[in-house]
């Protein structure tokens, strides 16, 4: 949707919450739970808690692993210990991370009298990834990469990539 269309429809945004996450925030083991819990509290959602955890988990892994740390998912497949090496490299790079920024915006939106939805936008200020190629890749039964996006596409009513792949916007129906 272009900004022009946005102005023309009758979307009512009733609440917005933004986070500007630093390297220290991204290192925190409680990153996903603090985001999900804040959203549940702020937007008075309780039933959706487990789904929000899953959505935030995939969104943050995506932003951190690929955007901020520049790790390629294909590494998970290389050799029998690929996944293990991926996690260890991730941990190592995350601990050394100095400057990083990830912005998270959560909006409660409603169009006319349709069911309201939550729009979550995550922007990482990293080099981005080739989402056109990644989205075209079929997710194999035994492959380890691409599952995060597959999960997001199932849990959300829409998943869109913006910019050079450094921005992802998902919408999640609240009904």
């Amino acid at each position: 949707m272009s900004p022009e269309q946005n102005l023309l429809d009758d979307t009512v945004v009733s609440r917005i919450r933004c986070w500007d996450l630093t390297a220290e925030d991204l290192r925190s083991d409680e990153l996903v739970s603090s985001l999900a819990e804040s959203v549940c509290r702020d937007f008075q959602l309780d039933l959706q808690r487990p789904v929000l955890y899953m959505i935030f988990s995939e969104l943050m892994s995506n932003a951190i692993d690929h955007g901020v740390l520049g790790l390629a998912s294909s590494m998970k497949e290389s050799g029998s210990d690929g996944f293990e090496r991926f996690l260890k490299t991730r941990q190592q790079r995350l601990s050394e991370l100095d400057l990083a920024r990830v912005a998270v915006v959560v909006e409660h939106r409603q169009i006319d009298d349709r069911a309201p939805h939550l729009r979550i936008t995550v922007t990482d200020f990293g080099p981005g990834f080739d989402y056109v190629r990644v989205c075209r890749e079929p997710v194999g039964l035994m492959t380890l990469h691409g599952r995060g996006l597959a999960i997001l596409r199932h849990l959300c009513s829409s998943v869109r990539h913006r910019g050079n792949g450094n921005c992802i916007e998902v919408e999640f129906l609240l009904d």
């Binding site: 988990s57 892994s61 599952r147 995060g148």
Partner: peptide, 17 residues
């Protein structure tokens, strides 16, 4: 288990292997 993410799926595949 409250929730599971894609890395947990990876861990189940590791167990399988």
């Amino acid at each position: 288990t409250e929730y599971m993410d894609s890395s947990a799926l990876g861990m189940l595949l590791m167990l399988r292997e």
